[in-house]
Structure formats: C-alpha cells, structure tokens
Design a protein around this nucleic acid. Structure first.
Length: 324
DNA sequence: AAGTGCTCCAACCGCCAACAG
DNA sequence: GCTGTTGGCGGTTGGAGCACT
C-alpha cells in the first residue's frame, strides 16, 4: 500500500497557472504568509491547486526578487564549478546565486550551459555508448570484477570532462590532461580507468596524447604496484583529478553518494579515495596489493591535504577552491 | 503552407527526511 | 519507537514555440 496522496488528484487543477491564480496566491501570501502549511493553503484561498503546486509556483515565480533568464558569465562559472564539485545539487547551487531558483538553474544547465560547455557533437552518443554497450564479466555471484574498466558513471564522466575543459582553458601548461611531461611513468589503475572512460567521450575534448600514453603503458592491470611506480605529480592539480573521480562505483556497483562526497569534501577528507584500508580493500583490484602498495594509494589525498589550509573545513572554502 | 523535429521551460512526480502526535 | 503528514529536492515530462525541410 502506497502513501496517501498529498491532495485529491481528481479535484485539483493541473497545468499552467492563470494570472488570476497567481494574483490570488500572491495577495494571500503577501498578507498572511504561508501559514506554515502549504497543503492547507489552496483551500483557504479557494484555489483548486495542490499545495505542492502552490509552493512551487511561489518559490519559483511569485516570490520577490526572482530573476529569470539572462545568466551572466560569472553565474555560468559558478554553476559550472559547483556542478563539477558537487554534482546536480541544484538547491545548493541556487543558494550561491541570489535570485535564482534551483528549477531555473537546473533548466538552464540541462538546456544550455551543458551543451555550451561540452559541445553537442556526439556527446550523447558517446555517453550512451559508455553506459549502455559496456559489458563486464561477473563472477557466479554476479559481482562485477572489472573495476579497472571504463565504468565511471555518466555523472562522473560528465563532471570529469567539464573539469578537463575548464582546467585546460584556464592554464594549458599546467594541466595534467594536456601536458605529457607531467604524467607519471606508470599510471594508477584508477587513472587508467578514468582515461579509458574518456576514450568513449567526445573526440573533440579528450586528449589523444594522453590516450596514447596510456596505451603505451600496456594493456594489463597486474595491480602489483609499488610506491616507486607512482611519482606524485608535483605541483599539479591532483586534487582536481582526484575529485573528478568522485562517483566511482565501488565493487558492489553502488555509486558513492553525492552527500557522502560533499561530506568528505567539507570535512577535509579524501577526494574520491577512501583513506581507510578496509575501504580500499573494497576495490577488487586492490586485494592483491601488499601493504606498501596500499599505502601508496593515499598520495592523492595526502597531497590534497597538504594543499588545504587548516581552516578549509568550510563550504566557503570549498567553493572558493573549486573556482580557483 | 504543411509537416516534422528540436529546444526550452513550467510544472508534475515520486522519493526521502524531518517533524509532530 | 511508530506512524502519518508535510516540506524539500532532483528527475522527468508535456506542450508551446521555433527552425528547418
């Protein structure tokens, strides 16, 4: 048995709001406020609308100081940076943009900004190919062991792709993605995984040199890594690379929740990598590692922590950091 | 001019967390 | 602690308007 509906669906009007309905709702709220109960409000003012619909109409269109359309370049940058950092948490993003609503930002992102930043050509095709055509071997228990394969979620891939473009635009010489001299001799399996994911994305944005570099490193993932194999990419935006990997599915196929990501970020924990050894062990390809190799996995997060000031445990810092 | 496809966005839907009783 | 109600949120849809053939 499902939950009771919030209103009598048969007796409520749906669809676009008329000017008269808008006027009624606005006049009432201006005079009395919402009364703390949206569900009861439409009855009080004689509107045949669902309370939720009234709330949405008020929040998105009728309340004062709402801006529609005409997003500035600065707002574009903020939206993009926050989307990369925290994903589709539109209410959080809207809170950083006075006068904008989450619905407006969501629509703007989905219809314009995403296309503007990622480009339309082949994006959907390649993303779909990535998610729909890849098949991974499973053991008899149905567990996917191919965690070294290109299995980033669409959201993670999209955010990563955006991130690459932004960083490359901002500082091509210091971008990990475009500067071969900054690549380590041997990539971490997760780095390889990330880059292999990019092979399925828009050809206009991934870096062929990087892909070639990965190919030259060999196809296999023996996962017998040693500390010396991972030269830290000194001075690079390792934090950004690591944060781009947020959303990696764990071995049970469940994606890291965005809330958990944000919590980790604001609490100055790892960027995309679990610090605890137990958590690392969840990745099947880490199971055969010796302790030293496991220890080497934390260099991304350690490097990040060295970059973050002690006072970075705040949302403001996170936003500022992502906008750098 | 008519048909078709695409874009945009207002509004809806369903899930979940918080809260009150 | 349990249950029902409400608010809040993100994903999705429907349709109006526009562009193209």
């Amino acid at each position: 048995m499902g939950r009771a509906p919030c209103c009598d669906k048969a007796n409520v009007k749906k669809g676009p709001w008329s000017p008269e309905e808008d006027a009624k709702l606005k006049a009432y709220i201006d005079k009395y406020g919402t009364g703390g109960n949206w569900i009861a409000l439409p009855q009080k003012i004689g509107l045949k609308r669902c309370g939720k619909s009234c709330r949405l109409r008020w929040l998105n269109y009728l309340r004062p100081n709402i801006k529609h359309g005409g997003f500035s370049e600065e707002e574009d940058n903020i939206i993009c940076s926050l989307y990369i950092s925290i994903g589709s948490r539109w209410s959080v993003i809207a809170a950083q943009l006075p006068g904008r609503t989450d619905n407006d930002i969501k629509n703007y992102w989905n219809t314009k900004l995403k296309k503007k930043l990622l480009g339309r050509r082949k994006q959907s095709n390649n993303i779909n190919r990535l998610s729909a055509t890849q098949e991974y071997p499973k053991d008899p228990n149905g567990v996917d062991h191919n965690v070294c394969g290109p299995v980033l979620s669409n959201s993670a891939v999209e955010r990563l792709q955006l991130h690459m473009q932004l960083q490359t635009l901002q500082n091509p010489n210091l971008s990990f993605y475009t500067n071969p001299s900054l690549w380590p001799n041997k990539l971490h399996p997760l780095q390889e995984k990330m880059i292999k994911s990019l092979q399925f994305m828009n050809e206009s944005t991934y870096n062929p040199n990087l892909i070639q570099h990965v190919s030259q490193l060999g196809q296999g993932h023996n996962c017998n890594f040693h500390e010396k194999d991972y030269s830290p990419i000194t001075g690079l935006k390792i934090d950004e690379l690591a944060s781009s990997l947020n959303g990696l599915p764990s071995s049970d196929g469940m994606e890291h929740s965005v809330q958990a990501e944000l919590d980790d970020l604001v609490n100055n924990k790892t960027f995309g990598f679990p610090q605890q050894e137990d958590s690392i062990a969840e990745f099947d390809c880490f199971k055969d590692m010796d302790d030293g190799a496991k220890d080497s996995l934390v260099w991304w997060s350690n490097d990040l922590e060295s970059k973050l000031p002690a006072s970075s445990n705040s949302w403001d810092y996170l936003v500022g950091y992502s906008l750098q």
